[in-house]
Amino acid sequence: MSVRVQAEDFDVAAELAAVREAGGGAGGIVTFTGIVRDMAGDRPISSMTLEHYPGMTVRELERIEAEAQDRWPLAASRVIHRYGKLFPGDNIVLVITASAHRQAAFEAAEFLVDWLKTRAPFWKQEATGSGPHWVEAKASDDDAAARWAASPPVARSA
């Protein structure tokens, strides 16, 4: 089980191998990689800058990972999220889950992505031809996170 927040890129194959090793006899491993898109709607993106809250980010990701471990029998898991300036095609986030059976691995991976999108303190700013703009949170992301129910994933507004 591990969580990392870093500026540098990650090696998906190396991380997958590490989870496979840590997961012992896990029968299934799911890997999700989030990648910088080249378009924001109909506007081309030249770069994306991810700001985060250094003190809180790792703690929040650890909480989300612990929640996934409580809900599914995971043999191993890994969450890596990048920050800083990224370009279209760059890796942003990696989620890997290993479990004895595929259903737990698939569900836990989806849960981790849904929850980190609505809870981990990162903010995306896209640079386009019309200048930089902050990406707005999507209601569809809140809905995706809310379907996992239990403790409310979306922080209340103040």
């Binding site: 989030g34 991810l50 985060h52 809250y53 003190g55 809180m56 703690r59 929040e60 999220h81 942003i92 986030v93 992505v113 980190l116 999108k117 609505t118 809870r119 981990a120 303190p121 990162f122 903010w123 995306k124 902050w134 990406v135 707005e136 949170a137 992301d141 922080a155 209340r156 507004s157 103040a158």
Partner: peptide, 29 residues
């Protein structure tokens, strides 16, 4: 709002020495 790096609502207590962070809805992932 997060107080001492925990999400809180408007009724949460604040005290001297707290770290209080204000930010828009998050957009990571």
């Amino acid at each position: 709002v997060a107080v001492n790096q925990e999400y809180v609502g408007p009724d949460a207590a604040v005290a001297d020495g707290d770290e209080v962070a204000l930010f828009p809805p998050v957009t990571g992932g």
